[in-house]
Amino acid sequence: MKTKKSVVVIANISVVVIIFLLLFPLIMLILNAFRETGDIYSKPLGLPDEFYIGNFSYIFKQTQFTRIFRNSFIIAIVTTLFGIIVTSLSGYAISRFNFKGKNLLLGWLLASQAFPGILLVIGIFTLYNKLGLYNSLFGLVILHTMSTIPFSSSLMTSYFESIPIELEEAALIDGCTQFKALRKVVFPLAIPGIIAVGTFTFLLSWNEFLFALVMMRESAKQTLPVFLNTSFVGTGGAVEWGSLSAAALLTALPPILIFLFAQRYLIGGLTKGAIK
C-alpha cells in the first residue's frame, strides 16, 4: 500500500517541529552549560561567546559530583533489578491466578498510588531509623522499589494478560513447572513490557527527590537530584546556572543511553510476532 507523498512530507515536518519544540529547553541547557553564570544572568538568551568549560572543571574538581553520580547509578540499577523481578512475579500471579484477596491487593496497589507522600514520609523515616535503614543506599533502593511497585505491577499484569495462556498451557502439558513456563515462555514474550518497567523504574529512582532528600543524611551518600538542588540553588532561589546546567547535562546522560538501548528492543514487535 502506497502512502501519498504529501502525507509523508507533512508527517515528517510535523515530527521535526514537535521534536524541536520539545527539546528547546534542553538546547538552552546545553548552551548554558558552556557559559559563565554571570554571562547567563546578563544575557538570558544567548550563545556561548567561547567554548567555556569552567563549569565542568568546577563540578569535577570542587564538588563531590563523581561520587554522587556513582551513588545514583548504583541505587537506580539495583532498584531497576528489584523492581523488574518483584513486579513481574506479582504481575504474573495477578494475570494468571484467581487467588484469595486478589481484589484487595489490586485495589490497594492502585489506591497506594494516590497516597500523598506527606502522609508517608514521617512514618517511613521513623521506621527506617528503627530498622537502621536510614542513611543507607539499600534503604533508598527499597523505598524506590516500593514507589515503583503499584504502577509497574499493573503494567506487567496488562502485558501478561495480552500473552495468550495457551502457550503456557502447552508448556505445562509438556511437563514444565509453572515457574519454568513463566521463565521460558512468558517472560521472553513480555520483553517490551519489562523494558518499559525497567526504564520507568530506573528513571523514577534516578529522578526521585523527596525521599532521597530526607533519607540520605550524609552529603557523600546523596543522589543527583538532591545534589543538583542543594549545590547550585541558594538564598531566595538564586541559581548558579552555569554549574547547574553542566551538572544537569551530565545527569541526563545515563537515561539517554538507556533510551538508546531500550528503543532497539521496543522496535521489532516481539509481542506482535508471538500473537501470530
Partner: peptide
C-alpha cells in the same frame, strides 16, 4: 529511531531541575 529517542529526553532531567 532518532526521533523516538529524542522525544524521551525531557524525562532524562530530574523534575526539580
Amino acid at each position: 529511531n532518532v526521533h523516538r529517542t529524542l522525544v524521551l529526553l525531557p524525562w532524562a532531567i530530574p523534575p526539580v531541575v
